[in-house]
Simulated assay, not measured.
Amino acid sequence: MDEQRSPESRQQPETRQPETRQPTVVVVGHAARDLVLRADDLPAAGGSAVVEERIERLGGKGANIAVGVRQLHPSAAVALVAVLGDDAPGESGRREAVAAGIDVAHVARRGDTALLVDVVTGEGERRLLEHVTPESQLTPADIDAAEAALAGADVVVLQLQQPADALVRAARFAFEGGARIVLDGAIEGDERDELLSVADVVRADAAEASILTGVEVATRDDVRRAAEGLLGRGARIVALAVPDEGDLVCWSGGERFLPHVEQRVVDPTGGGDAFVAGIVAGLLLGAEPGRIGEIASEAAGSTVQRLGGHPELSPPAEQE
């Protein structure tokens, strides 16, 4: 970006009053067809297993986040920038997104829809199979077509499993329009530094946090050091996963640890997507950082209690 917000100008977390006009959110990320299969046990090589439950619907991290934001903040206008295939699963996914209240004007249609197969055992163990082709990924041309939406948004979520050139271009439009930018995941190279320089919020799991910061993340102290590094780059809020424990939300002058839910996890798929949706909802509500983390953690905890990554969330108390 030609002009970057200085870390000093972005250090204090911003507590805003709830929006009086309709807030706008744009999610840049992946859309796919989800096939979720639950079996009591996985078969050995050459064997078979009975599928106890099967679900097919719109999925992908970008689509899940967009749907989650809409559920948590029903008054928000939520647009998805993604790719669905020019095929029957793509059309079905588009219709599901519309039914969920998502603006799909900037969902490109080409090739085959990406397929995500989520195989879950009765003990909540997951195996994920992905068929994601290059044509199902966003291009700079797709981003250019969404320039007006990105430049006019209040919050833009960049799901970092997309090609770097498309992400940087989206960040540029969002930054120039004054949006609050939420990064989800990790990216390497020069693009990482450029995206971190304009991020208001950074969300990552432990492996992603290591990629972003160079800190090997295994303990809560490791997570704290990684978060401090990201805050030093200018982020207002950093939310990082502590392996097997929970999530640590940090901001200038404060932090809050949010333990994982105590209930048995049915399927971990989509927990991180719901967490990001919760962050966005908290931002739109003008909540303080600790409360934003709480909303996000509650959304994630709810999602992992159900099969599949598709969220089924209720607005937080502030929105009811």
Rank of each mutant, 00 (worst) to 15 (best):
R94Y: 00
S302K: 05
A148P: 00
Q159F: 02
R180G: 13
V117H: 01
P315Q: 00
V242D: 07
L84I: 13
L158W: 10
D112H: 13
Q22C: 10
G29Y: 11
P163M: 05
P13E: 08
E318V: 07
D87W: 04
R110S: 09
A99P: 00
G62Y: 02
A170R: 08
D40H: 13
A241F: 00
V69W: 14
A277P: 05
Q11P: 00
I102H: 12
V168M: 04
R109S: 14
V78M: 06
L240Y: 10
L84G: 12
R169P: 00
T20N: 05
H30D: 02
D144L: 06
L248N: 10
R220E: 14
Q11M: 13
L195F: 12
V51P: 07
G308P: 08
D118T: 14
E194C: 03
A114D: 02
G214M: 10
V78W: 03
G46S: 11
A218I: 00
V36P: 11
D273S: 13
P163D: 09
P134K: 06
A164F: 07
P243S: 11
A241C: 12
L80N: 08
P89N: 05
G152I: 09
S75D: 15
L116Y: 06
A296H: 01
G309T: 09
A235N: 05
Q319E: 15
A206T: 04
G286V: 10
A174R: 13
R225K: 09
R203F: 03
I55R: 15
Q4K: 15
E8R: 11
A281D: 03
Q4C: 06
P316D: 02
A218N: 13
D2C: 01
V69M: 10
P13Y: 09
E52R: 15
T213H: 07
R192H: 03
D221L: 06
E298I: 14
I237T: 07
E53P: 10
A164Q: 07
V119G: 09
E123N: 14
S136P: 04
A105D: 12
E135N: 02
D200V: 01
Q12R: 15
G122W: 13
L160V: 04
L248A: 08
A171M: 12
V276R: 03
V198H: 08
G122F: 14
T24A: 12
F257P: 11
L116I: 15
G68I: 04
G60S: 07
R256W: 01
E194K: 11
L196R: 11
G214H: 05
A149S: 13
D40N: 11
V238Y: 07
A31H: 01
P268G: 06
A44D: 12
G278L: 11
L72M: 06
R109L: 06
A239M: 03
R233V: 06
L58P: 00
D221K: 10
L212G: 09
E8F: 12
